[in-house]
């Protein structure tokens, strides 16, 4: 009995490890769809709409990558993953790319054998409390009960922050954002902590968002971005430059509305021409069609359009661009040169 269990465990380990092959691009093309690891449900970032179509900020990046590789932004198979299972699923080859509010850290980049080719959202960890508590600063949270998603960097930051400030807290571990939201609204915890974007997205789904405040403290740096397996550099390049294409397009003024027009014939701006494939051989260098970026931008527009449509100030999530503004506007979004 014990032996069979052992064999079984090894078999599973062996098989899952065996799936992770090097050439993800070939796998995706052969399959005809992109497997994208996404959040199980975070309004504005990744959540299915009333018709079951996934939409959101992270979802748009998945669709953009699918458009770059397969020419079809709908050719995506979304695999909802919890914070605990996401990296294992990626390492085991269950998904081709993970776009799930994942923080780029040293350990994940090196020890977990992942690569974070680009950053699509610069975030930081914050705290949300009910307005009725009358708390105005995280320093007043001594003795508070805090809901926290397990398996996240937030979990470690939380421990560090409270220890550094010499205040005590009671962690209530939850597996998903939905569970954390339910516990927080039931009052089983005083505080909900995660990345500020996540807090804003969660608050947007509340019945009375105004009854909850996000405290001013930002206790960590959370650069969020797509993750791929370490070692498949060609695939990592595609994910990196798809993200950069979205950002650069915003800088150059290429939008969903005008991309077809701009791509029809070479324009005066050589950078736009190279991006859209009307000049040079950039597509071939990365193993894609010459007009790959046109397909990418035709799905949901450039970075700014995706941001405004899903999480911008006009939406329920209501996030300001802040650090995620273009570098020309004092933000950190800096699309690499297409040359």
């Amino acid at each position: 009995m014990t032996k069979t269990v052992f064999i079984g465990a090894l078999a599973v380990a062996g098989l899952t490890a065996g799936i992770a092959s090097a050439a993800t691009l070939d796998d995706v093309k052969a399959r005809g769809s992109l497997k994208c690891g996404s959040n199980e449900g975070l309004a504005g970032f990744a959540a299915p709409d009333a018709n079951g179509n996934w939409e959101g900020f992270d979802v748009s990046l998945c669709r953009a990558i699918a458009a770059a590789v397969l020419g079809d932004g709908q050719a995506v198979e979304f695999v909802p993953l919890t914070s605990q299972t996401r990296f294992t699923a990626l390492a085991a080859g269950e998904v081709d790319v993970l776009v799930r509010n994942s923080t780029w850290t040293f350990t994940r980049d090196t020890d977990l054998a992942l690569d974070f080719p680009a950053i699509n959202y610069y975030d930081g960890q914050g705290f949300m409390v009910p307005r009725a508590l009358g708390v105005s600063s995280a320093a007043e949270l001594d003795g508070a009960t805090v809901c926290i998603q397990t398996g996240t960097t937030t979990e470690l930051n939380l421990a560090d922050y409270f220890r550094a400030n010499g205040i005590s807290y009671e962690p209530v571990p939850v597996a998903t954002n939905a569970e954390g939201q339910q516990q927080y609204l039931a009052g089983a915890c005083d505080v909900y902590t995660t990345d500020i974007s996540g807090l804003a997205a969660t608050r947007a789904t509340f019945e009375a968002p105004g009854d909850h405040v996000i405290l001013p403290e930002v206790v960590s740096k959370e650069p969020l971005g797509p993750a791929v397996r370490h070692g498949d550099n060609a695939w990592g390049d595609i994910v990196r430059w798809t993200t950069h294409a979205l950002v650069a397009a915003e800088e150059y003024g290429v939008t969903k509305a005008n991309v077809a027009e701009l791509a029809a014939a070479p324009t005066d701006n050589p950078e736009v021409n190279r991006l859209l494939g009307t000049e040079g051989e950039l597509g071939a260098m990365i193993g894609l069609d010459a007009d790959w970026a046109v397909k990418v931008l035709s799905v949901a527009g450039n970075y700014g359009e995706i941001f405004e449509a899903n999480i911008g100030e006009s939406t329920a999530v209501g996030l300001a661009r802040g650090l995620n503004a273009q570098w020309t506007d004092g933000g950190l979004m800096y699309g690499g040169p297409f040359r």
């Binding site: 062996g14 065996g18 470690l156 209530v172 571990p173 370490h230």
Partner: peptide, 30 residues
């Protein structure tokens, strides 16, 4: 099976090591 596991982990750039047990946990338990 063992060889397959070890080889595939090596391909992924991972080794089998239990030294993580002695590093700082960094999280709290209620």
């Amino acid at each position: 099976l063992v060889d397959n596991t070890v080889t595939n982990l090596a391909v992924l750039g991972k080794d089998i090591s239990f030294s993580f047990l002695w590093s700082t946990a960094g999280y709290d338990i209620n």
